[in-house]
Amino acid sequence: MPPAAFAERVLAWFDVHGRHGLPWQADRDPYRIWVSEIMLQQTQVATVIPYYQRFMTRFPDVASLAAADLDTVLGFWTGLGYYARGRNLHRAAQWVLAHHKGCFPTDPESLRELPGIGRSTAAAIAALSTGAREPILDGNVKRVLCRFLALDLPPGTARDRRLWAAAEALTPTSRVDAYTQAMMDLGATCCTPRRPQCARCPLRPDCRAVALNQVESFPRRAVRRAAPEVAVTLLAIGDPDGRIWLERRPPRGIWGGMWCLPECPPETVPADWCARWFGEVPASCAALPEIRHVLTHRRLRVQPWQLQLSSGWADPGLREGVWYQSGTMPPGGMVKPVLDLLAGPIGGVQG
């Protein structure tokens, strides 16, 4: 199929069946598009929309995002997952303020200098904000092209090279912004990973995977090793006033930079750990039901403990953190297992 015919079919489908009226489509503001593109990485549109709306209300421009402290930013990211994205947004906003005088860039070269932005994301921001002819290759587009070409290559450099060449050849010279959105929509709503809606696809007549009756065989998947299982022991230490002790996680590693219950080494007795750091043996110490939590590259087996201090002067010594009162504003971003614990067996948090 000639590239022009490919783009014509995709655009005609988009005009009727594409996603229009999304919050970040209101204008071509590159800042708004950037925030949406980062949020949409590995996250569905329906999930992103309320987070995006709250985020943009609090951080309407790059200057307000750069000026905020990281805790505030991660607080608005809480529940969205993949928290490195929130940290990178904050760092990138500060970079734009320092190196671009607060004017968010739209050329791919400058965009790729920002933390968390790769080749495809930079191209998407440029195409959607200015209409520049920049091919994209996110997960949805890779799937569409792999099936259309029946590209039987494993994930890796060789396959990506072929796909980038195809994306470059097929991207039209006009309506690039609409075409870019159309390709993402086609993969997200029609050419889905499982049970694709081939009967609705504008590319069906020339799709090689359809001709082979092997649509779901493409793209070829990587051989996945079982994700390692990691044991994590979290301590919910309460004081007589009903407060819970929270600490910020290290900037790198699991839940980097997020506020969390303190982690106790699995081989350490929770009561002994509490006595060491708080100078007091807890009046009670009880194991709560184990929580299973799946991350991208590992599976967590979280064992929470509830410990109750009897004195009102417990001092955590050299540990940095805060006493959190249920129902008040959290100090910053928190991860789902901690939110679930605070909302359930160890007290409530704001909705």
Rank of each mutant, 00 (worst) to 15 (best):
R159A: 03
D160T: 02
R161L: 06
R161S: 06
R162V: 11
L163D: 03
W164M: 06
W164A: 04
A165F: 05
A166N: 07
A166R: 15
A166W: 05
E168N: 03
E168Y: 10
L170I: 07
T171W: 04
P172Q: 12
T173D: 15
S174W: 14
S174A: 15
D177R: 12
D177C: 10
A178C: 04
A178R: 10
A178Y: 01
A178F: 06
Y179I: 05
Y179P: 03
T180A: 07
Q181W: 12
Q181I: 00
A182L: 07
A182V: 03
M183D: 08
M183W: 00
M184N: 00
M184T: 02
L186Y: 02
L186C: 03
L186N: 02
G187K: 08
G187A: 02
A188I: 05
T189P: 02
C191T: 04
C191Q: 08
P193F: 03
R194I: 11
R195I: 12
R195H: 14
R195D: 14
P196N: 05
Q197F: 14
Q197P: 05
A199H: 11
R200K: 15
C201V: 04
P202A: 05
P205E: 09
D206E: 15
D206V: 11
C207V: 01
R208C: 04
A209P: 02
V210L: 10
L212F: 03
N213M: 14
V215F: 06
V215I: 11
F218A: 09
P219L: 00
P219S: 00
P219Y: 00
R220Y: 02
R220L: 11
R220I: 02
R221D: 01
A222L: 06
A222H: 03
V223H: 05
R225P: 10
A226P: 12
A227K: 14
E229G: 15
A231S: 15
A231I: 13
V232A: 12
T233H: 13
L234R: 11
L235H: 04
L235T: 10
A236G: 02
D239E: 11
D241N: 15
D241M: 14
D241C: 14
G242T: 06
G242S: 08
G242R: 03
G242Q: 09
R243D: 12
W245F: 15
L246P: 03
L246Y: 09
E247K: 11
R248Q: 14
R249K: 07
R249G: 10
